[in-house]
Write a protein that binds this DNA or RNA. Structure first.
Lengths: 218, 218
DNA sequence: CCCTGTGAAAAAGTTCACAGCA
DNA sequence: TGCTGTGAACTTTTTCACAGGG
């Protein structure tokens, strides 16, 4: 029993909680122990009522007349987002992007742990991607077996566009419940699998639209 | 004079146009010359009325009773998004992610052209990042001068979190009008500069929320 | 008096449903 | 008849504004 129902939380609130959490952690390391919604709002360029409303979906988190205790709020949001445990992830596709992600320090801090990396190409299978001797790229053929043995929560997909759909299908069959897709195609999410898109070319096209718009207005 | 005003286009429509464009290009290479909003909608998992409404902000694009001509619509959306020209971009931060982006083939197809790469660390300045002999990482000290000589439209920022804010500030002073920020901090957008966030850890935290939610429901 | 928590209003975005043209 | 283009209804999200506790 908790004071809230996750289904009542608007989908737009979730990424904002991540944003608040990051700023709160920064404030905490800077020694700030208390903050008002107004001050936090100014720092991250959102509306103060937005912050208060977002937090209110989870129940009361602050003190009237005072504000929010930074450490306490960090702990609360961490719990709400399910970040008080470790999530295991794998990377499918050991190209440049996949390798860059594999070496990215910073997932660890957030308790996201890379447990394996897969590729279909013989030229990269066996290649070392991390500090441990055992951090070697595996064949995608081992995917099913690996997922059956080890608990895999999330998969990052960095395969070429043409292989993304079948890769996600395969991951779904192996029981992976969440996918972060970096391939420049919108993949169909299989039943019960959460798919999020990280879409570079789409971002660039948006920038292009607004840049072009700016030129019109001159 | 054009049949529409870009300010009337909802901000959510723009990334969807990019999505439509991608699927239309795929259909085109597959030889499909005509498509209805209904069929396109099914393929990319959105509502058909959504597509028609999105397109309607730019005026009429199809034929009643028939549908949309694929090639014609590709050309139209390309123009609306400002993709009928080449956009020059630079990358600031020659770490793993920056280098992966620099080598990514696929920007060229979209007429985005990498014209320089910068870093502040002596250990990477001068390193080759592309096929040309002249594709070498420059010192950030050269940034201003470079931007004055060459036209730079977009900057991708792949520096550490702590340097992102000052980097964007510096880019703004150098006259860069659009920034794609990969650093895990929300940077304040200087007046007249368009900043878009590509935020991995935020995406992961969102996945965490929904994964955790799924567990509750069992 | 200050700042949270929250109903209520406003704005933005999505979907429906149908008129109207090919 | 078939499918677009679009007002209108509906849903979601944001912002306002203020009651109420510290």
């Amino acid at each position: 029993m908790r004071g809230f129902d996750k289904n009542d939380v608007p989908s737009v609130t979730v990424p904002r909680l991540a944003l608040y959490l990051r700023k709160l952690r920064e404030l905490n390391t800077r020694g700030v122990s208390r903050i008002s919604s107004k001050d936090l709002a100014e720092m991250i360029d959102v509306n103060a009522a937005q912050i208060r409303k977002d937090l209110s979906y989870f129940g009361s988190a602050g003190t009237r007349g005072v504000g929010y205790e930074v450490e306490d709020l960090i702990e609360k949001i961490t719990g709400w987002l399910g970040l008080d445990r470790t999530w295991n992830f794998i990377i499918i596709g050991a190209g440049l992007l996949g390798t860059a992600l594999a070496r990215y320090r910073g997932f660890g801090e957030q308790r996201f742990r890379l447990v394996a990396m897969f590729d279909s190409s013989a030229t990269v299978i066996g290649a070392r991607y991390g500090p441990e001797e055992s951090d070697r790229v595996r064949s995608v053929r081992e995917l099913d077996e690996f997922c059956r043995k080890e608990s895999v929560d999330i998969a990052m997909v960095t395969v070429p566009a043409g292989e993304a759909e079948s890769t996600v299908q395969r991951l779904a069959e192996a029981g992976v419940k969440a996918v972060l897709n970096f391939a420049p195609v919108k993949v169909h999410a299989p039943e019960g699998v959460l798919v999020r898109q990280v879409d570079l070319s789409s971002e660039l096209m948006s920038l292009s639209f607004y840049l072009d718009k700016g030129q019109d207005e001159r």
